Computed example of a mutant assay.
Amino acid sequence: MTAAIGVGCRLTSCPDAEQRVDLPLVLMYPAVAPATLRRLGPYDMTAAWDAAPAGTSLPLVVVSHGNNASPWTLRDLAAHLAREGFAVVLPEHVGNSRHDASLAGTLANLRNRPRHVSLALDAAMADPLLGAHLRQGPVGAVGLSIGGYTVLAAAGGRAWCGPHESPDGRPQRVEVVPDARLGALVLLAPATFWFAADEALRGVTQPILLRTGSHDTITPAEHGQRVCAGVADPNQVEHEVVPGAGHFSFLGVFPPSLNRPDFPPAQDPPGFDRATYQPRLWEDVARFLRRRL
């Protein structure tokens, strides 16, 4: 009898010479080994910790979290991808995370985030446990909210910061080195404020799975429309407006300690059931990446 594929998980980091920090990383991948529960801040994660990866030529996916958030907010999606045969790396964006929000709303943050994507991919490919099990070739990228900006910028989008983000109070180009390894993008309620200029997204040529919420008041309909109209080939965008969903409805279900009225990321518009919707989202993402990578 074949053993069931579970989720391996490894906590590591990589140096960011520009910020002079170590960038925390979560690696998830298929594994066949006993799983144990571990508490990580407010989150519980059951995984085979530091277990050997199962399989070879695993396609790699990088996941970018939202503003002042944590990789663990997208842990359920990452775990589903791991069970489906993907390797996933989730960087914590230092300066714009739950632990360190010191650069939120700055030009530096807009520059740093796409670089973190490339550093995370480099680290996953060089990881002594996982690296040899990865497939060579295009990788996937998933981004939620400002993580959507991050993925689009890393994929070739040309962003401009606003005057409130610029050190001199004037809009200016966000200098980003695109990562040619990105072969397919998943955008969940993406924030696209920085791509309003003409031709800003023409350099994005990858196929895109786009999900937006009909009741999103933070990145409303125009953000998804900007992606659909702005990329090189709009026919490459698979867009669904999810009825009743809000901005945070694409995040995983939060633990009871955070599921309270004064914590907006845990809340959905009345009538929307995040727990029921999530498995459909996970499978949409897995199916898209399987087809496009």
Rank of each mutant, 00 (worst) to 15 (best):
T2W: 10
G6W: 01
C14V: 14
C14M: 04
P15N: 06
E18A: 13
P30T: 02
A33S: 14
A33Y: 10
P42L: 00
N68K: 14
N68A: 15
L74E: 04
E92K: 05
V94W: 07
A101T: 01
G105T: 04
L107P: 01
L110I: 03
P114S: 06
A120P: 00
A126W: 06
G131H: 07
R135H: 06
R135G: 12
G137R: 08
G137W: 07
G137Y: 10
V139Q: 03
G143S: 03
G143F: 00
G148N: 09
L152D: 11
A153R: 12
A153K: 11
A155G: 15
S166N: 05
R173S: 12
P178G: 05
L185A: 10
A189C: 10
F193A: 14
W194Q: 15
E199P: 03
V204H: 08
L209Y: 12
G213R: 09
H215T: 08
T219Q: 10
P220K: 11
E222P: 02
A229S: 15
E240H: 12
F248P: 08
L251S: 04
F254T: 01
S257G: 05
S257N: 05
P265Y: 11
P270K: 01
R274K: 04
D284H: 11
R287A: 12
F288M: 04
R291N: 09
